Simulated scan of single mutants.
Amino acid sequence: MAAPTRSARATASGTAWDKAQLAPVVLVHGAEGLLVDRAVERLTMLAREADPETERTVVDASAYQSGMLSVLTSPSLFGEPRIVVLAGAQAASDALLTDVISYVEAPAPDVWLVVEHRGGVRGKKMLDAVRSSGAPVVACEPIKKDTDKVAFASAEFKRASRRASPGAVRALVEAVGSDLRELASACAQLVADSERAIDEPAVEKYYGGRVEASGFRVADAAIAGDAGQAVSLLRHALATGADPVPVVAALAMKLRTLAKVAGLRGHGRSAADLGLAPWQVDRARRDLAGWTPEGLAAAISATAQADAEVKGAGRDPVFAVERAVLVVARSAGR
């Protein structure tokens, strides 16, 4: 098996999981488990596309014993190519750290070594050695921003060759976007069950109850000044198992966006400067039509207090979030 040309030195961030390419040594690094798993599977697929006889071995880094890497990468009797995955290197044994540092100086032929590290400080010297060797890095950091989740979901539909309207994607992210695995699963479910382009009614059909009761819908109603609807949605959400913490987080996120967009006025700053998508800015501007600076300040203050209380500073998280929702709704238009 001819080894590919070793890639140029990786950048600090690395490449995306869906751009990962084979090399004698590849570092898959980051705390987003779904992306780590996908990167490893992609590399395995590429190795088997290069040679269907490729043998894959997965080693638990925490149980690694000295010399195992040498055995796994030594020339094979039949000369078949191999891909060796060092899984969970963030919990690596001392022996593995030592052996990897030595190995990257002279990788074995006919072997693809994948070092899978899911974040943390353990193994820093090993990570530095892998990066310094010129091995490519696949970045698998958590996706936290709504704009990035929307982009992720859009890419999922595109990979499945299925069109999805922007509104449908945003509604799906609002419904199930707190966990990336769940979001990916929801995209796959919609692709499997929808024969046409995916629109908002399709999302409503499968995830309508969750969308209506999500923290973002509670926040939307409160920011619109509809106290009755906001409290009704909140109580339904809590009754169906929602936790007060993410509800308050959604409220805080919406208010922060309003504050950022309000700050754009007269300062010559663009949406990109704030890390916001154009649709977020447009929506925030519509929402701001009924708000004054004083009302916004009161809503942010009440939400900050609720955030502290639902995280342990108060005795009744449910009361705290309901009070915050009411204050926000009543602050609209003040």
Rank of each mutant, 00 (worst) to 15 (best):
G268V: 05
F157A: 08
E141W: 14
D307N: 06
K19D: 10
Y206F: 11
L274M: 10
L238Y: 00
E53H: 15
V248A: 06
D60Y: 07
G167T: 09
A139R: 10
M253W: 13
V121P: 15
T303R: 03
G228A: 11
T44G: 14
D282T: 10
V218Y: 04
L180D: 05
A186V: 05
L183C: 07
A8P: 04
V104F: 10
S232F: 04
D37N: 14
K124N: 15
E53L: 14
P293I: 10
V231G: 04
L127W: 11
K124L: 14
R334Q: 07
D307K: 04
V100C: 09
V169D: 04
T15I: 10
K144Q: 13
P166R: 01
V321P: 00
T73C: 11
A50K: 12
L35T: 08
V121Y: 15
L274R: 08
T54E: 07
E322F: 00
L97Q: 13
A155W: 07
P136G: 01
E80D: 15
V40S: 11
V115F: 07
T54M: 13
V245E: 03
L233G: 01
K311F: 02
R159L: 12
L190F: 02
E141A: 15
F78G: 10
T147N: 15
A108I: 03
L172M: 05
G312E: 08
A20M: 02
A139H: 05
G177N: 12
A224Y: 01
A250L: 06
A186L: 05
K124T: 14
E55Y: 12
T15R: 12
F157L: 06
W279A: 03
R6A: 13
S165W: 08
T257Q: 08
R56I: 09
A302N: 05
W17G: 04
R9D: 05
G314Y: 03
A237S: 07
R42G: 04
L234T: 00
D148P: 04
R265M: 14
R48D: 04
L296K: 11
K205N: 05
G228N: 05
V40M: 11
A299H: 00
A168H: 04
R265D: 15
V130Y: 09
P142R: 06
S161G: 13
A20F: 04
L255N: 00
Y64I: 07
S93N: 06
K254V: 00
M253R: 14
A151D: 10
L233E: 01
K254F: 00
K311I: 02
A289V: 09
G167S: 12
A219Q: 00
S102R: 14
A249N: 09
H29W: 08
L190M: 03
S93P: 13
A197C: 13
A186D: 02
R210V: 03
T240L: 01
A164T: 09
V36W: 01
A202M: 07
R82E: 12
K125F: 13
D273G: 09
I101Q: 15
G30M: 03
L264E: 02
V28E: 06
K125R: 15
D273F: 08
R181C: 13
S62G: 14
E41N: 10
S178D: 14
V84A: 12
G295W: 06
A135R: 07
A139C: 09
L251N: 03
G314L: 03
L172E: 03
I223R: 01
T257D: 01
A155R: 11
R210L: 02
V58I: 07
G134N: 01
R315M: 10
P75R: 08
G314Q: 03
R323F: 11
D128K: 10
